[in-house]
Design a protein around this nucleic acid. Structure first.
Lengths: 207, 207, 207, 207
DNA sequence: CATGAATGAGTCTTCATTCAT
DNA sequence: TATGAATGAAGACTCATTCAT
């Protein structure tokens, strides 16, 4: 799938709005306005609002796949370092508001077998496959535990990151960080979660 | 706030539907139908759909508060046992589809300062307060580490549980558990997550 | 099915517009405006535009059924007189712009198995049944031919009447009847077609 | 008017679709797709959808005119034979789904003075003129009645044929002809209506 | 000469809410 | 107090047409 510039503009606008307001909560009018295109363009280019969401999803999913693959292929790192890099990568992506996981996870997907549900499942399976390889590297090398529930580990990381997104204001408040600028806050939070997750995964993975 | 029977019926119907379909995805018609009341009753009793959600939230929040408080007051348990009980309690609540956290977290709340955002923040603060006491008990008793980021720990638990909710089909698939009935699956998952979270919290909290 | 006054207003407006402009050519806005009700009332009362058309159809169909039945039950008339009365009845109905046959026949119905197609088929079968009885009366009495293709005869009458509706301006022009008022023209046309059809049916039915 | 190949392709596609779905029910997209041309071509070549329908109409009208004229000029046939030939010709045309009369009659034309209404009137007048000559031949020759309402006769034929088109499924059902293939059914119906109309016109025209 | 891209008006329908009773 | 009826705004989507290329 190749998208032209206008299509990409729409996809980006949609991604941002879906992330903020959810799929149902976002109207095609909103998207058209944000992307500064005619409302009819959405149907024209993508067929429907749902198909647009699929496009958002697919595009993002491809990007992530590339990132993860290149990381895994890097021979200069130890397995645990790759895991740490993966954490930082996810973290950066989540913090840059490219929170498209949440976007989609929120809506009907949990149970419904929509086309997006299927796409999501596929992506998760691919991710799992890649990460399984990574962890097997660590196990073969001898630094990782022999018995690890890999899906459970993945899920833990993603769950913590998702929760982070919705909890930043809370975290800011309880730690009295109101004096920080948005960027400072973001940097701080990123550091905290990076340490936290790395620490968690060290405990989960390492012997 | 005291609610009469009809209001409670509406609140329960609303809670279930919000949990399944999200706030925006649920219409007052749906709620009225599920609660078997006239559509106009919702506006009549609660003023608006949003106010109804607040009622759902508030009621739930009170129930949780009671549970947690009673747990903390129980002198027969060690602090770490209380934490474990807390985990099982949260887990049971999440698994019984009383997933109202998710309900609300999904909608605009993350950033928008809606009335519900405020309610949510209040509830979290109360919860934090209670849990802080619990952890301080453990620290004073000497079994817990001295330096613990308590909000981060809370957030980790809730994040994992939230993620669990949306990932059960994925978990079922990758672990080849399709042969289990829904109840067996739910029981299995609950056991796995209970162990996982307790293990995680042991590492986070215990010296 | 019992309809309240507002529903009947809508049905009548819809009938007139469907007759003039066809089903597809008529918007719910048009109907709402003509009936002087809010647009949403159409969905509110009838569910959809198509369901509204079904209501139009059903109501009309019931009225016709009653008329025909009462005619057939009249013992004071000879069979051929009943046929003549039937012709005049149909004619009057068609001329009074209650041309709902055409309304519906026009749209997709011919081939598509819509709900209306089914309703139409049912009505035609009922009508055929009634008319078959009438013609059998004539046959038993001895004045009608033994072998008559009754559906073909019905179809001939309805076809001529339908065609009349769309051809009145043409007929007016070629017979130089422009000087007549609309009512005079209508009366004249009705007389001409009454004679024509009675004549035709005499030839088709009588020995 | 001369049309190039592409234009003719469009006209044919449009004719078929208008016949099936009506004017309003057919979109230019449908036509463009069926004709396998760019959507913009329709506006480009014909100016508008309505103008396209005029072209469809005009082209068809010319063809019919030619057929009728050639029939009338044939000196080898008696007038009643020409009438029978005319009936079979109309019948064949209607059965071959080239039912463009119905196409257009369906839409606004009955009362509205659209450009097509005018075209239709002109064509009818021309047809009437030709048929009048034919019937005068019969009258002069002595086999036809002296007093015949020719427009009424024409209208009867067209009305029956139109009705036939929308009633074939009904006719099939009541005569229990479901076992016939579509072609067999069409052939049977054609035979029945040919006999019926010829019989009718014998009675209307012959002394 | 031909067309892909783009548009604004229009489609039907559903929404949360209000009002008269 | 309670509700059936009613409403205007908004929903997603399709339409015939135009325009720059």
């Amino acid at each position: 799938m190749e998208y032209n510039q206008k299509q990409l503009t729409i996809i980006n606008a949609a991604e941002a709005l879906f992330a903020e307001q959810g799929f149902v909560g976002t109207s095609v009018r909103d998207i058209a306005q944000k992307a500064d295109v005619n409302i009819a363009m959405i149907s024209y280019y993508f067929g429907s609002k749902e198909k647009l969401m699929e496009a958002v999803f697919q595009l993002k999913s491809e990007k992530i796949k590339l990132k993860v693959d290149s990381l895994l292929a890097d021979d200069s790192l130890f397995p645990i370092q790759k895991v740490h890099a993966l954490i930082d990568d996810y973290l950066a992506r989540f913090c840059k508001h490219q929170i498209f996981h949440r976007i989609i996870l929120r809506e009907k997907l949990a149970e419904n077998e929509t086309s997006i549900g299927t796409l999501l499942m596929e992506m998760r399976l691919k991710n799992l496959e890649a990460i399984t390889k990574l962890i097997q590297q660590g196990q073969e090398e001898g630094s990782f535990k022999a018995s690890i529930d890999i899906p459970l580990a993945m899920l833990t990381m993603v769950g913590v990151l998702n929760q982070m997104l919705t909890s930043i204001p809370f975290y800011q408040k309880v730690h009295h960080l109101e004096h920080l600028t948005e960027d400072e806050l973001s940097g701080h939070v990123q550091q905290v979660f990076s340490d936290h997750l790395k620490n968690l995964f060290n405990k989960i993975l390492l012997k």
